Computed example of a mutant assay.
Amino acid sequence: MLVIRPIEQRDFPTLKQIAIESGHGFTSLPVNDEILQNKIDHSIASFAGRAAGKGECLYFFVAEDSDTGDVVGTTALEADLGLSSPFYTYLLGKQVHCSPKLGIYNVVETLTLTNDYTGSTELCTLFLREQARKGLNGRLLSKCRFMFLAEFSELFDNRVMAEMRGVSDEQGKSPFWSWLQEHFFSMDFPTVDYLTGIGQKGFIADLMPKYPIYVNLLSKEARAVIGKTHDKTRPALRLLEEEGFSWRGYVDIFDAGPSVECDLRQIRTVRHGRHLKVRIGDVADAGKHLISNTRFDDFRALIGDVAVNEEKAQAVMTEEVARLLKVEDGDTVRLVEM
């Protein structure tokens, strides 16, 4: 059974291996020891000193196999984007060129560089290792974040977003970046992807075009991938769409992958979650549920069999499930039916 828990120092070797496996375009996990260690340190500090409200906190989780102890996935929440380091996106918009005298009316699409997501909360660093891509594991890894958001909503922004990896090939070549590289830069996509991942973003402000880009001036290949998602990222996008996330025209500045968003209070798992008291006992009439404890620094979540006693407002679970969640009889858990 997979259990979600906060990342720990002992997870560094596995985190580095996951960074290698994630490949090009997975900006939030660069293959850089110092950056990966900083992420672990940042998360540990965020969990150790609970903020009074929203702050520049990183809540980094791993999925651990309870049978083997192996870490098989990562997922994270960035509470407050773009305060210490600018967070850039392109916004796909429209420009009208009209001349009534000549009877001409043209609408053209534009890409405008923005910092519109500054202060928003980001869902990030979702990666499930290949050997664990089965059953409900992907759903657990994605949806566990919403249980944490719901339980500690005061620590997050009401606008929750997620960047979806855009289109690139096995060598890391992005059709969208290829056009930008030709006209504005002299770096390939893997290089800019890596520099962004390690926080060296100064070149963006220095070299990015300052004015809106007319989409019809881009290459055919670049236009075709605007708002499109990498094949390996489509399952993650579908899970977010099930939760109510939608694309509102924002795309990544390097690969043009879509950024999707949702109001925190409208996320399905947040809306449907409820608190119940734990009772350890017979689960003969159990159904699959997403369950989390209500602890902050010792958060746990999993998908398990639970029988709900509506009259007593109880979640009836086995000793194993209770042990993995670190709860006992009478404790409170958050529950969502799968």
Rank of each mutant, 00 (worst) to 15 (best):
D157T: 06
L217T: 15
I267A: 06
T269C: 08
P209G: 01
P30Y: 05
R129L: 11
S85N: 15
E122H: 11
Y105L: 07
V278S: 05
S66I: 12
E311L: 14
L126N: 08
E241D: 07
G69T: 12
G227K: 06
L276F: 11
L102H: 03
G49R: 04
P235L: 06
F60R: 05
P209V: 01
D252F: 04
R133V: 11
V260N: 02
E34R: 10
E78T: 12
G227W: 11
S292L: 11
E242F: 08
I267T: 14
E130L: 09
K228D: 05
L149F: 09
D231N: 10
I226E: 04
D263S: 07
D231S: 13
T121L: 02
R159V: 05
A322P: 02
V308S: 03
A222D: 00
R133N: 14
D188I: 04
K134D: 10
V215G: 14
A205M: 09
L149S: 03
A76H: 09
L29I: 06
N293A: 07
K173S: 03
F146P: 03
D282W: 03
L92C: 14
R279P: 00
W247Q: 05
T89I: 03
K201L: 09
Q314G: 04
F254G: 02
G166H: 04
D297S: 15
N38Y: 04
E56P: 10
E320N: 03
T121P: 11
L302I: 10
E130H: 10
D67T: 13
L36W: 02
W247M: 03
I204N: 01
T27G: 09
H272G: 12
F203H: 05
L83G: 05
D193M: 04
E130W: 06
D80F: 07
V108L: 14
I198C: 04
N216K: 12
L36N: 09
E261D: 11
E122R: 13
W179F: 09
F61D: 03
N115Y: 02
D41P: 01
A284N: 07
D116L: 09
G119C: 11
H42P: 00
F148S: 08
L237T: 13
N137W: 14
R271N: 04
V167G: 01
A48H: 05
L29K: 04
N115K: 12
D116R: 15
R323A: 07
I44E: 10
L126C: 15
P86H: 12
S99H: 10
S120Q: 10
E78P: 01
L207T: 11
L237C: 05
F87Q: 08
K173E: 03
S66C: 13
G273D: 02
Q266E: 14
Q171A: 15
G23N: 12
L155T: 07
